[in-house]
């Protein structure tokens, strides 16, 4: 029971530290994120400092975690096991890159900036949820349909041949 509360507290603390860090770093401001991507124009290197700070501390966490058999509040680590570079990974990252470059927003700052109550963040967040729901609910059926059509074509080809 204590673990349940401890894990809820960890989720809250991690979220708050993350959101406060984003606010301090200046990365809630889409103009500064786009400034980082604008290498040929008004380049703003801030995001490089944010990434340097974030990845170095996160790396320390990763190194410590490799010495542990399990996390402090769970019986095992829940980490992605997939290793292969596939089309969904690259296509998804590219689609995300277009939206990120257009707006200067990614999911973390999009959620955190809702606190400021500005209309563009709510429009962005609502459409982002729609994009997530479209992917999670429709993509499996679209893929299944493609597979079924492909299988049918092979069967038809067998029947004809």
């Amino acid at each position: 029971m204590i673990d349940v509360f401890a894990r809820i507290f960890v989720a809250l603390a991690a979220g708050v530290i993350f959101g406060f860090g984003l606010s301090l770093s200046g990365m809630l401001d889409p103009a500064r994120v786009r400034g980082f991507l604008d290498i040929a124009g008004h380049f703003d290197p801030s995001l490089a400092f944010v990434l340097a700070g974030a990845v170095s501390i996160s790396s320390a966490g990763t190194l410590i975690s490799r010495k542990l058999r399990h996390p402090l509040l769970d019986s095992m680590f829940h980490l992605p096991l997939k290793q292969d570079i596939d089309l969904p990974l690259v296509a998804g990252a590219a689609i995300f890159g277009v939206g990120w470059g257009m707006s200067g927003l990614c999911p973390g700052p999009a959620i955190a900036s809702l606190a400021l109550g500005l209309v563009p963040s709510y429009v962005f967040a609502a459409m982002m949820l729609a994009g997530i729901l479209i992917h999670d609910n429709w993509l499996p059926s679209i893929r299944a349909l493609c597979r079924r059509l492909a299988a049918k074509r092979i069967l038809d080809a067998d029947a004809n041949g």
Binding site: S25, G26, A52, L79
Partner: peptide, 25 residues
């Protein structure tokens, strides 16, 4: 830039805490 570095460090700290305590990304 110093704010960006420290803010980034806090983001990294949040992800390290989540990993070490809860075992997740």
């Amino acid at each position: 830039y110093l704010h960006s570095l420290i803010g980034g460090g806090l983001i990294g700290l949040a992800s390290a805490l989540y990993l070490l305590l809860d075992g997740r990304i």
